[in-house]
């Protein structure tokens, strides 16, 4: 794992791993999320989404605007569930 390139900083998913699942046919952010958990860490994909879109674009040639973005759901920031459940 020397010189590994981490893409998702929270879940520590590498570029290699992402390319592997793209080769298996995954073509969008939500798919990568389900396959690897990338974008599901504490920050919820704030940093890696753009990087993953660029990797999908580079590996498959699908134009960036056609790659489906991550579905945005509340909460957009980490908050304690206790506060909402009250």
């Amino acid at each position: 794992m020397k010189n590994k390139k981490i893409i998702c900083r929270c879940k520590e998913i590498t570029e290699e791993e992402i390319i592997e699942v793209i080769k298996k046919g995954i073509r969008d952010i939500d798919g990568i999320k389900r396959a690897l958990g990338a974008g599901m860490g504490l920050c919820q994909g704030k940093t890696c989404t753009n990087l993953i879109i660029r990797i999908i674009n580079r590996e498959t040639g699908i134009p960036i605007e056609k790659i489906r973005q991550q579905t945005s759901r509340a909460p957009v920031r980490p908050i304690q569930i206790k506060i909402i459940s009250d």
């Binding site: 909460p75 957009v76 908050i79 909402i84 009250d86």
Partner: peptide, 20 residues
């Protein structure tokens, strides 16, 4: 204060002073 989501009919969820 964190506007954590926008829901139906322009309702905004906000966390302010530890309250929803």
């Amino acid at each position: 204060s964190i506007a954590y989501g926008i829901f139906k009919d322009k309702v905004i969820g906000v966390i302010k002073d530890g309250k929803n």
